[in-house]
Nucleic acid binder design. Structure first.
Lengths: 149, 149
DNA sequence: TTTCCTGCAAAAGCTTTGCAAGTAC
DNA sequence: GTACTTGCAAAGCTTTTGCAGGAAA
């Protein structure tokens, strides 16, 4: 059933281990942009032994392979947050608390649709930078308090 | 001559000290998104004593006041990079090296102009998030190598 | 069987903090 | 004079690394 995952890994030159499976699934399921530490706890809860060092090593491998991305961290305690390469979405980052939240799907999508593909292509050609992912963060401040909950 | 700076500080409830002046000027002059450590060295070169802890404290104060921003760090050695609240610009972030570069001004500006203000306003109203700054990062990989120089 | 991955523990960085002395207001 | 800042050094975090044992291909 997770043959698909195995193929994904293989396609990127990664071996398929129990730990990597678990980490990848946790990361792609969890919509909360977990830190390495949070992933570690998440996986250990449902599964078994897993060392924090392995989480870091694995995430590094995923990032190199393009299966995951580091997000604008810059928040709270300064630990890096990760995300799978899923659909681009818009982040809201609170300047004061460092909290990172996703914008409502529809609005985020509509805003991102306005990014001019042709200009990005021009940029790619002009300076030789291949764009894999567009990350848009709105930095500001929550006035009410819908920060997750 | 730097009365202006003093007023800026005062307007945000910050006292104006020699160190803060120096840090702010270095940060706004330097186009390279320095880390706290780089700023520390920068200021010490031209000026005088300055403790690294003060750089951190000061940057934290600036960020709270909205005079500076933490950028998507996530790169290289993992230290946070800072920027003044100047004009929005587009960042290119290399997935492999973590290098952070600015897009050419004209292209960056043209891309950012396409962001739909009305949708961002809608977002502000709908979820009570006040946007101070839009940070767009293109994550990818340099094919040639114009990473700075 | 070979090469890569994991786990442990220790090391290396970055950032924050407590406190006494100094400075802006 | 009072309240906020600074500098120092130490503590607290997150992340990386070396190495021996284990697992994937």
């Amino acid at each position: 059933m997770s043959d698909k995952l195995q193929q994904t890994f293989a396609g990127h030159g990664l071996r398929c281990t129990k730990q990597r499976r678990a980490i990848f699934q946790a990361l792609s399921t969890c919509r909360c942009h977990p830190t390495a530490d949070e992933l570690h706890r998440l996986v250990k809860e449902q599964d078994a032994d897993l060392s924090l060092a392995t989480v870091y090593n694995t995430l590094e491998a995923f990032c190199c392979a393009g299966l995951a991305y580091k997000l604008a961290c810059c928040g709270g305690n300064g630990s890096t947050r990760y995300d799978t390469g899923g659909e681009d979405h818009l982040h809201l980052r609170c300047r004061k608390t460092g909290k990172l939240t996703d914008a409502p799907d529809d609005l985020g999508k509509r805003i991102l649709e306005h990014l001019p593909k042709e200009l990005i292509d021009e940029l790619q050609e002009r300076i030789g930078f291949e764009v894999n992912k567009v990350q848009v963060d709105l930095v500001g401040e929550f006035k009410k308090n819908p920060c997750q909950s």
